[in-house]
């Protein structure tokens, strides 16, 4: 009996080791194993239910945990409402509708020719050290690995893995993420990268900047695009919040336009499945 138990353990050990090696090789060549795809598809309804419940709980707990922030937001909204009331009454409905539409069409306005696929979050990474989301769009919807992901506010990240009807998206706060970028005021070039130390603060770094570059706090940073980049040009990444100089050059911290921590199932994410200059 004891021998049989040991045999089971040894067999399981060999299987676990084989799985680790095979999946590591798959990860290196960028292939998603069929088991992962099947499990993900089977568990999708369960994950959807879990996410809905989590959203409901979050909404309820926000009343207590974020009371101050909500109170301030409420005050701001009251003031905004009062200001709006002063405007011409006939225009109010049209104005609101226009603002709402503008928010959602901003990307299409500024970066014409993007082919966007709308997606929603169904789950998150469980490892506690990476901001990886699973979205409800996959290869059947035309999604491929390395495609950029946006929100109406700006760049979120890129597709790391794509399954049949799901994909895993890595945020720009991760160390594996790097985007060629430029600043709006002076056109200074650099690379926006994730940094472990800054990730908890919701910031990332801009590196490889010319030492004499003219940068200021508040400068906006956009994607540079180009043939070697997966990102189309002129998409908002964020703005500069601090500039320091050390031996290696300038250390610039960027606050992404997208608040990664507040992305949930209600948030609208868009995957860029193609753009005009890509051909």
């Amino acid at each position: 009996m004891r021998l049989e138990k040991i045999r089971v353990l040894i067999i399981c050990g060999i299987v676990a080791l084989a799985i680790a090696i095979v999946t590591a090789l798959f990860a290196v060549i960028g292939f998603t194993g069929p088991v992962r795809g099947i499990l993900k598809t089977v568990a999708k309804p369960l994950e959807w239910c879990g996410t809905q419940v989590a959203n409901a709980v979050n909404g309820f707990s926000e009343v207590f945990t974020d009371y101050d922030r909500l109170a301030q937001e409420n005050e701001e909204l009251r003031e905004e409402l009062a200001a709006l009331k002063e405007q011409v009454q006939d225009d109010t409905v049209l104005r609101e509708e226009n603002t709402w539409l503008k928010e959602h069409l901003e990307i299409a306005d500024t970066s014409a020719g993007l082919r966007l696929t709308e997606a929603r979050v169904i789950s998150r990474a469980i490892d506690n050290y990476s901001t990886v989301l699973t979205l409800n769009r996959g290869t059947v919807h035309g999604v491929k690995v390395n495609m950029p992901v946006l929100t109406p506010d700006g760049v979120f990240g890129y597709v790391k893995e794509a399954g049949l009807d799901w994909c895993k998206v890595v945020s720009l706060l991760e160390t594996v993420s790097s985007i060629g970028a430029y600043t709006d005021r002076t056109g200074a070039l650099g690379v926006v990268q994730g940094d472990l130390a800054l990730r908890d603060e919701g910031l990332c770094l801009m590196t490889y900047i010319d030492k004499n570059a003219d940068l200021r706090i508040g400068d906006r940073v956009y994607t540079k695009g180009g043939e070697e980049s997966n990102y189309p040009p002129d998409l908002l990444i964020g703005e500069i919040v601090s500039i320091e100089a050390d031996d290696s050059g300038l250390v610039v911290r960027i606050k992404p336009a997208v608040d990664v921590s507040r992305i949930d199932t209600v948030s609208r994410l868009m995957i860029i499945c193609g753009y005009a200059s890509e051909g």
Binding site: A43, L46, E47, W48, C49, G50, T51, V53, A54, N55, V57, N58, S61, E62, T65, I122, S123, R124, A125, I126, T134, S261, D264, T265
Partner: peptide
């Protein structure tokens, strides 16, 4: 597994 990746991973509290 589904609870871990969806419910618990999304709870902000």
């Amino acid at each position: 597994s589904a609870a871990m990746s969806s419910f618990f991973a999304q709870l902000t509290c």
